[in-house]
Write a protein that binds this DNA or RNA. Structure first.
Lengths: 86, 86, 86, 86
DNA sequence: AACGTTGAAATAGTTC
DNA sequence: GAACTATTTCAACGTT
């Protein structure tokens, strides 16, 4: 039985291998992204601004949802909809 | 001269002591915050909502600035104000 | 009813104010800690190692040794001992 | 002039689209990794130690030993050796 | 009391 | 090499 000091060694090896494989994939994608930025830079675009655009576009949807949630919460807080214990 | 293997031991000890002192302070404040939440809960408020309110109030100012930056960036991107190399 | 709501709302505002005040304090202390690290760096100390020192001092020995042992076990299981990690 | 801007704007849109596509891929892989860790945890492995194993395998021995030596030095300087951290 | 979720801290990487 | 940003790791909290 493939145990080393109570550890299922084979299982552990599999897990480690899978993670390392996936991390390689991830690195490959990250490198692709870098390439695109480099290419963009070569085409005369400002990569710093480009990164900000990407970041803000990501935030956009999230922010909208946050605002919605905020409104909801304020309504509850002011109207004491839920936590009215007084 | 107070050196151990090339390290200024006294200086290091001082630094460690200062950091540990400050971390105690920080923990004390964190505990105070917990207390307030516990008290609020005792008064019938929903701590989850309370935490969200705090978080969103914090975000508020930041988000406004992000939006401003986004507008600025889009203006640059569409008008190609800076990176117009074509 | 509006009265009750009003009282609870006042209470809520107080709570929020207290928490936000405390979080400012906490941030101030956190900033102080950062400053000490920056100062230490300026004096030639390696901040990463310094953080490790602080962390080790916080851990009690039992916990530390437990983790070390478990790590060793895992490394052995995958056929990579701590010593020959090179 | 409007034309040039238009062409560059199209190019910019393409770039942004490509990056966002790649970032989705990256996120998907990152999620896969998380899943593996979750699965490992379900199988009884300590994920924190597991992460350490992965990290150690990535490090080359020289770097690792350097850091260990420096840590030892600091601990000695403040009168706390690695062994008697208890 | 373990689990997942979320927020803070720390580390690594990039740019200037 | 110093500052800023992004990613990763760690710890706290609520939940079941």
């Amino acid at each position: 039985m493939a145990k080393t000091g109570g550890i299922a060694a084979d299982r552990l090896k599999q897990i480690v291998a899978r993670i390392e494989r996936l991390e390689e994939d991830k690195k490959a994608v990250a490198d692709d992204i870098k390439e695109v930025y480099a290419e963009a830079k070569g085409a005369g675009f400002d990569t710093k601004i480009l990164r900000q655009v990407i970041r803000l576009r990501k935030l956009d949807g999230a922010e909208y949802q946050e605002q919605e949630a905020l409104l909801e919460l304020y309504l509850q807080a002011i109207g004491l909809t839920h936590q009215n214990a007084a």
